[in-house]
Nucleic acid binder design. Structure first.
Lengths: 341, 341
DNA sequence: AAATTTCTGATTTACGTACATCAGAAATCG
DNA sequence: CGATTTCTGATGTACGTAAATCAGAAATTT
């Protein structure tokens, strides 16, 4: 059996109350006594039984998710996963609140973050727009000892405790290699559709993509990036225009959301044009397009994993506990038509 | 707050003791009373607080892992992950025992399984060799109400509670498409290295691979399968012989373990021969080979995830609880040199 | 040295559940 | 109808920790 507080008390020759004061960092213990107790804790290797502690405390974890509004499927899926998590609240002792802010809107995000100051929260998770103001607002929460986790898109140079999302540079590089290898040794143009360069995940995907393209596939030329703002209709019109503007386009990389517009644009020029298409985010639209051959590969991050991981990490941080790093690594999923879940 | 046993007792108009008898299926309750209590439980939506129950019970989960011996990296990694899990035992209230049996040895596996009968276990996890005798032994454990989980390789038609592993047919199909697309429209032979057709995962990978190759890449011909028995030295000699036997080989698919032999064989004919190589299992050897260009893609199953998932599932089953199905789906990882973790 | 302040110990209750004991009520049997 | 047998209630203890209260000891101040 593992040692309990009683064992510490006996080993240190103090009472249970003193042990409790040391463990929970309450005042009223002389330095020498405190050190004696800490020595005993280390010596017999005591580890707090978190389940019992939570039971005794009646612990709940109030958590806030700040998510962008917008009708693209990915954010829809993300919201839905957070909602799923609320259904498990009573089991997991969480109390999850969802705040919605307009996408790519720095001041709205800052206002939402600042409104959380002073609240007794076990954690805040946000899809970050990468701006200094947001970073500052996050740092304010962190300085209040509130665990903060960025979700999907990270913040540069902030003190957030954790990032629950994929490595977007690696994602961009992977997209480039898939596209390059699938195109064999062909020569031609590649068009890239992004959401907004205001979010770090899109910037990083583009960075990785460009790097590998330039270094390893010199026969493929990148056209100027299209900014679709994750909006399906806007994406459709941008891609249509690009495709009719240049007949040399043989590949498409969509690194943001709003893919149902892109899919429509590609379908409109099929089967006359031969295009190899790699996109991000598995949704009902991209799944169908992968199945029918409109798309060749989908890179994906599992929103459910991200949400569950974010919650686990916030709870652990709130309890001052560690996490299994490997378990919280969010993986880049690569889907071909053969390995769809 | 969620309802407790006290609330049930009040709602049903019975005593705490009676509620307890109903909840824990102990005798001494009249049918009508039992139904009254069950109605109250449903009505107020009581859910047992598992943490409190485990605390009261002093619950521990004795678990057995049955793993094949053998010096290939994958099994080595799997054992290491189980070992990691033993280090978390005190937190997770598990008591993990590891049994090792010779690989592909049906009677040894059956003996190990049968030796577990009558023991009070919270679960048994095994890397299954797919044979009727093994299935029967597993079914005997299941009939003793011991949760059984297959790991990495599944059993046909058995009553095991769960399979913690990837979809191997999908893995084979994916390998075929990657190889096919990477080879562009080239014509030539493909050699396939397997471990043993006695395990279902290898059979299924081959099945998926062959199906997609035949249907979608008619210019690529499959050579007879080489059986390396997951042994590096044997794999090396088989592949070397195949490569020197036919100059038309342009692609290699290794669906089992023992890849350090395969890598050595491929390196021996480089750079004269141009080969596209897809293998399974990310190990230090395959990782290095992916980085240096010897291998083009690695399909992987994360042994750590499989082990942790297996443990979560066994604990849940032992408690008669459900699992988050999506969380326990083991994913097929596809690694190119750009997205290595 | 007395008075005060600061520590420390002993004890108790609580969290939600499991489980055992014992007494009394209800049902069944002879 | 009394004697069993079968149910049910009341009560208490336990799991490991948190947190509160109160009394007494030690240290500090005056």
């Amino acid at each position: 059996m593992r040692p309990t507080v009683h064992d510490i008390a006996a080993a240190a020759g103090v009472s249970l109350a003193t042990v409790d004061r040391v463990l929970n960092q309450r005042p009223g213990v002389r330095l020498v006594t405190r050190e004696k107790v800490e020595a005993a804790i280390n010596e017999i290797g005591y580890i707090r039984d978190v389940a019992a502690a939570n039971l005794a405390k009646g612990r709940v974890y109030p958590i806030v998710f700040i998510l962008p509004t917008g009708d693209n499927s990915f954010m829809h899926g993300l919201r839905s996963e957070v909602h799923q998590a609320t259904l498990r609240s009573s089991f997991e002792r969480t109390e999850i609140r969802i705040l919605e802010v307009p996408p790519f809107d720095v001041s709205a995000l800052v206002a939402a973050l600042d409104a959380l100051q002073g609240q007794d929260l076990a954690g805040v998770a946000l899809v970050a727009t990468d701006a200094p103001e947001v970073r500052a607002a996050v740092d304010r929460l962190v300085s209040e000892r509130i665990p903060v986790v960025t979700l999907v898109s990270d913040l540069t140079d902030s003190t957030r405790h954790h990032y629950a999302g994929i490595d977007n540079i690696a994602a961009g590089r992977t997209a480039a290699r898939l596209l390059g290898r699938f195109l064999g040794g062909q020569e031609g143009d590649i068009t890239v559709l992004a959401g907004s360069m205001l979010v770090r995940d899109h910037r990083e995907r583009l960075e990785g993509f460009s790097a590998v393209m330039a270094a390893e596939f010199p026969k493929l030329r990148l056209l100027p990036v299209l900014e679709g703002r994750d909006d399906p209709e806007r994406a459709r019109s941008l891609v249509s225009k690009a495709l009719s503007g240049s007949t040399k386009i043989i590949g498409v990389y969509s690194l943001g959301a709003g893919n149902r517009g892109l899919i429509a644009a590609v379908k409109a020029v099929r089967p006359e044009r031969e295009l190899t298409v790699v996109v991000h985010e598995l949704t009902q639209h991209t799944r169908a397009a992968l199945m029918d051959g409109t798309i060749d590969a989908v890179l994906n991050q599992d929103a459910g994993h991200e949400v569950r991981s974010a919650i686990r990490v916030m709870k652990a941080k709130a309890d001052g506990q560690g996490v299994i790093a490997d378990q919280e690594r969010i993986r880049l999923d690569i889907f071909l038509k053969d390995n769809l879940p």
